[in-house]
Simulated assay, not measured.
Amino acid sequence: MIFKRTTGEDETIVAMLAAALRRDISFGSLMPDQKLKIEQLRQRYGGSNHSMRETLRLLSAEGLVEATAQRGFRVTSATEDDLRDIIMVRGQIEKAGLELALEYGDVQWEGRVMAAHHALQKAEIAVATTPDDLTALTWDEACKTFAATLIDASGSPRLIDMQAKFFNQSRRFRLALLREGNLDFARRKARQQALLDAVLQRDTVAALQVLTEDIEAELRAEPNTA
């Protein structure tokens, strides 16, 4: 064999495959509890047996995929109990992270929060006006960035990693609500502005309260009042 794939190349391929599967799980192209067969996935996404297996192991560690007793893989379930647990865990992690960030965050952190909020507002307008796959993906990424930025001054890498893991697990619930028209963008805008205001005022009590409400509302049906 003339060319040998390096470890770095393997990691790049796995990262690309993981991003594609993550997206399709979030958007419902890969359904909850669906069996994931290596050969079928390779035909759809590319990669080798090894890279696809490593991808599934990575997504399993993130909680998006489960290994079955028969040594296969399937998409993690998405039941009401799953949703309830994700809301509870996200709330605990993100409140802890935000409380620390409010204590330790500097002016630069405030600037990052403001920038993330501004990008989210633009994405919200776009997806509310034209809810296609592209605007939905951009909007979902803006939601993720805003949530991550709120805690990135916490000083806890492990807490930040946990927040990212459980946020990824919650994405398909949010995108499902978007597809079903069960997001009230006017209420979302008001909550997000209230959260930003509380952060800039360093009002910890108000910030944690609005954050809790926002996590709950973005994952459960909230009929549009328009």
Rank of each mutant, 00 (worst) to 15 (best):
169 Q>S: 03
156 S>V: 06
86 I>H: 13
122 K>P: 02
163 Q>R: 11
126 A>F: 02
132 D>I: 01
101 A>P: 14
138 T>Y: 09
134 L>W: 01
130 T>D: 08
96 A>T: 13
164 A>H: 11
122 K>C: 05
137 L>M: 13
91 G>W: 01
173 F>P: 09
167 F>T: 11
135 T>A: 02
97 G>D: 06
160 I>C: 09
127 V>G: 00
166 F>Y: 15
162 M>A: 13
104 Y>C: 02
132 D>H: 11
130 T>N: 10
95 K>P: 05
90 R>T: 05
131 P>A: 00
173 F>N: 11
101 A>N: 08
114 M>I: 13
108 Q>F: 01
136 A>C: 03
109 W>E: 03
85 D>L: 12
138 T>E: 03
107 V>T: 15
150 L>N: 13
144 K>I: 06
88 M>A: 11
96 A>R: 15
97 G>S: 06
84 R>M: 13
90 R>A: 08
146 F>E: 12
97 G>Q: 03
96 A>M: 04
141 E>K: 13
114 M>V: 09
142 A>H: 05
86 I>V: 11
86 I>A: 07
121 Q>L: 10
138 T>D: 05
106 D>V: 06
166 F>V: 12
155 G>M: 08
83 L>Y: 04
117 H>D: 13
135 T>G: 04
136 A>Y: 00
148 A>Q: 13
111 G>C: 01
151 I>L: 09
166 F>N: 04
110 E>N: 11
112 R>M: 06
101 A>S: 15
168 N>A: 15
116 A>T: 04
101 A>L: 06
162 M>L: 14
103 E>D: 06
110 E>C: 06
90 R>N: 12
96 A>L: 12
149 T>N: 04
81 D>N: 14
131 P>G: 00
152 D>M: 07
123 A>W: 07
141 E>D: 11
129 T>E: 11
137 L>I: 11
169 Q>V: 02
105 G>L: 04
161 D>K: 12
